[in-house]
Design a protein around this nucleic acid. Structure first.
Lengths: 200, 200
DNA sequence: TCCTACGGAATGACCGTTCATTCCCTTATA
DNA sequence: TATAAGGGAATGAACGGTCATTCCGTAGGA
């Protein structure tokens, strides 16, 4: 929930807000929640400690706001250029490739989301995602359709998601941490391998 | 590193030590590191707060000790009844199935390890694992052999591990949290799917 | 009596949050 | 234009609480 604030439009206030967000994103991504106390976020953003509370109710509010925005950007990226009427494999490869490309270009966003998922809210968030999955997002639809057409193995959505997205996120982390070196050819191979896991 | 202690052998002291370990394991697994302060661990173990420091140098020492032991148990379980001279697929299915069965029987151990991996030490530990991978554990050997025989896709070990173990651990967590319900048939299907991801 | 294990209050560091104060920009007035 | 007043934005020292760790008095066995 945003805190009501006099100047929402693109003026100095918005700039300051963005500075806080960026500082928090970086610190949490690089040091974890432990390594991102409010005082440090404020210092990195170049504002006073109290100023943060003019823009966000409390730390939870700040963290959740960042998470929501980062997640939305993930979906946007996967939907950009999505071949809506192409065959299932093409659509899936598009999603996987777009996701991996984005994650390795925005390592802070990946690390932040991972930190978030492994925290008290993380479980609640996943529960909501899985059980509240009545809303028809395009990716869930694609998976459902592929199961119905007997292209995918007849498994629950949660399992199919783990088979496909789990390894992709893992290798992005390994790339960011310098354990492996991803390039376009390798990304294609790994996405292909994840496809193989899903295929009937 | 254990702290030197007069009575190491199976007497009352060892019992008390185990109580501390069990309490810490449960609290960290269920509440995360934040929710497992030393005072709470002591209370749950039924000992004084200071007593913990007679058995472990500090909290880090305690946590690392538990992690090391839990991880060793994972390997033990995967190696129990390992069909060393069977075909690659049989050996891999054995490992995957044994791991999943163990993890869903010991949810605390899985949750603890996940908490550990997402913490400051987590990255260091993984770095050590990947770059210090000169030691020939049986599982790495199996993967190397399968690549050499062109049974697996020609990918780095870290990637193959992510493709195989990543989804397996994910679905165990989902099972523990009640999001899905694993049974023997389903485990077999999922392990089979992970095999498909690796297969050339 | 000596020595070791133990408990739990005490300690000091640190964290999120608050709030009295200051700063600065806008507006009103002459 | 010059000046004063008003008010929202920003600040950072201070507060209350929590944490890991230490310290010291006590109990019990040799």
């Amino acid at each position: 929930m945003d805190k009501t604030h006099k100047c929402d439009k693109s003026d100095k206030c918005a700039e300051k807000r963005d500075l806080i967000i960026q500082a928090a994103l970086e610190l949490v991504a690089e040091q974890g929640f432990h390594g991102a106390p409010m005082a440090m976020i404020a210092e990195k953003a170049g504002v006073g400690a109290g100023t943060i509370y003019r823009y966000f109710e409390n730390k939870d509010d700040l963290i959740r706001w960042i998470y929501k925005n980062v997640e939305e950007r993930f979906v946007e990226v996967m939907m950009q250029g999505y071949p809506e009427h192409g065959p299932v494999r093409e659509r899936l490869v598009h999603i996987g490739t777009a996701l991996v490309r984005h994650l390795i270009n925005e390592p802070l966003q990946l690390r932040f989301v991972e930190q978030f998922h492994n925290s008290p809210y993380g479980v609640d968030h996943r529960r909501e995602k899985i059980f509240g999955q009545q809303k028809k997002d395009i990716i869930s639809e694609l998976f459902h359709e592929a199961v119905a057409q007997q292209i995918f193995k007849p498994l629950e959505l949660a399992i199919l998601f783990s088979l496909f997205f789990g390894p992709l996120v893992d290798i992005c982390r390994d790339h960011i941490l310098g354990f492996i070196k991803l390039d376009d050819a390798l990304i294609e191979q790994v996405v292909g391998a994840c496809w193989d896991a899903l295929r009937r």
